[in-house]
Amino acid sequence: MNVEPPVRVEDKLYYNRYLVDIGHPHVKVRAHTTPSPQLLALLKVCPARCYELNDDGQVEITVDGCIECGTCRVIAEPTGDIEWSHPRGGYGVLFKFG
């Protein structure tokens, strides 16, 4: 296998414009002790890398960079692992090109 340079998602998100709705995250992770396979999948599949493992091995989300694709909802809402809504009107990502 060839070794690939790591992709810096933070740099990609830096191109985008956001209006962050401070204190009103539109996606929430249900409290858990051990993450389900669905939650663990989000660590990799979220294109904005919003999901991360904390030091205790639980999955956490920071929605600031979310590009509102809905992938995490498709995977982890059926199991009740996350709650997913649209941001309030006008908030969230603002695509200039799309």
Partner: peptide
Amino acid sequence: VADFQRTGQTPYGLLDQ
């Protein structure tokens, strides 16, 4: 999405490749 979920590939990894 089911394939991403199954394989653990990252979307940005594919894009950069």
